[in-house]
Design a protein around this nucleic acid. Structure first.
Lengths: 235, 235
DNA sequence: CCCTGATAAAGTGTGTACACTTTTTGCGGT
DNA sequence: ACCGCAAAAAGTGTACACACTTTATCAGGG
């Protein structure tokens, strides 16, 4: 049992997921079953199963007899996703404020302070992005409701590639940190309603900022590389 | 093109879905690929694909090399689902209050009044349940955010079979109608925050009531028939 | 009688073949 | 050149076969 009961379909699915989140597979790219099969050294059957799962998760789109393609996020859909995520994170933090244990609050504070330090020392922006993701995750998980956590994280994953863009947008990191300050203050003050409003505004603002950034750079979202860098079009 | 591009896997998936929502397949029931294949007159391949999709949707659970079973909702999971749904519906109505068109508000009022009439005339409780579902759906869709709507309805679908139980719980229908009154008032008054609170309380209460009902009747959720009736155990 | 373990039965995971659909290619007419 | 259209190529959907895993069956020892 060397492979921990991971079926080949699982392996393929995880690999494709990584390539999408990592940016090797960009939105709009076509996934052809035969190629993937030979690339991963398996038959088309497990590849097909992986694709089915990914389609169900919304990471790729699929129609009968048509090639599967990595999900294309047009601007309005992306805004909707950010808005929905803002509401979900708001709902989660509303519960988390009264439910997080002292240990969980401490871990949250640690993450926040590590991010502050990274920002002050001019550390690696990608590392800062990871800390930002961890910050949101820690808050969401604090609500102790698996259904809500899963739903929220599922949405968060979908916008993750786009959320990271902040690392290249001027002034965005500083603003991000300020927002996090306000959120963490509300949580420690036990003001659930304020925490909800802060995180809602914060996540909505991220979406808006991304839209402005894309519009300003006259670059379609298709040219926007999920890693947070623009594809073959240096600033 | 008589079958509207429905692949056989789609057909099988829809059939299984109907059987789950309809109650022919109860939570805990095992789905065996071979049987289903011969029952639907197809090979195991499309059945397998349907099962993969249903598993991804959370309607059934599946582990490597193990039979797929209709998702079992233990009490704590069910409470979590209701809580998460309460939050999502709250988020949706918060947006809907300012976004619903007059036509949409009118349709909502129509549904509400039809429900009131049904209740007053001692109409078919199942019809009342349908109206209740439509009421929630109309509100959620009023937020005009596809991502949020899809997410909420997906959760709502999962608890739908349990939500219907109200039709057999004494006094529950009347209470339900009163709650809806309060919600619709808040919406028409344009008080988004109040609407959110009302629907949150309402949906949470539905979950609690279901739990009490199950506990009182000393019947495990496994014996609880999704159609809203207890299986071979008359009251 | 109840374990325990071996063995058989049942069931899932994947490779492969092929029918059917979509997309591409290429050719003749305008 | 530009269309339309037919034929080929590419690709998806499904059936089927078989290896491997899990579950059920059963015989013998405590």
């Amino acid at each position: 049992m060397t492979d921990r009961d991971l079926t080949q379909a699982d392996t393929v699915r995880l690999a494709i997921e990584r390539e999408i989140f990592g940016g090797q597979l960009a939105p709009g790219d076509a996934l052809e079953e035969g190629r993937l099969a030979s690339r991963f050294g398996v038959s088309r059957t497990p590849v097909r199963e992986a694709i089915t799962q990914l389609a169900q998760a919304g990471l790729i789109t699929k129609r009968a007899h048509k090639r599967a393609v990595v999900a294309q996020l047009d601007p309005s859909t992306m805004l909707e996703l950010f808005e929905a995520l803002a509401e979900l994170e708001g709902a989660a933090v509303f519960l988390s404020t009264s439910r997080m244990s002292e240990a969980e609050k401490g871990a949250l504070k640690d993450i926040h302070e590590a991010a502050a330090e990274n920002l002050g020392n001019g550390g690696d922006p990608n590392e800062y992005a990871d800390l930002g993701f961890a910050f949101h995750q820690q808050i969401v998980r604090g609500c102790h409701n698996t259904a809500l956590i899963d739903t929220t994280e599922w949405l968060a994953l979908r916008v993750l590639p786009y959320r990271r863009f902040q690392v290249v947008a001027p002034g965005r990191l500083q603003r991000n940190q300020t927002d996090h300050d306000a959120i963490i203050s509300a949580i420690f003050a036990g003001d659930a309603e304020a925490a909800r409003e802060e995180i809602r505004r914060h996540t909505l603002e991220q979406g808006d900022a991304l839209m402005r950034f894309i519009a300003l750079n006259k670059t379609s979202h298709a040219d926007f590389h999920p890693n947070g860098l623009i594809k073959e079009q240096p600033l």
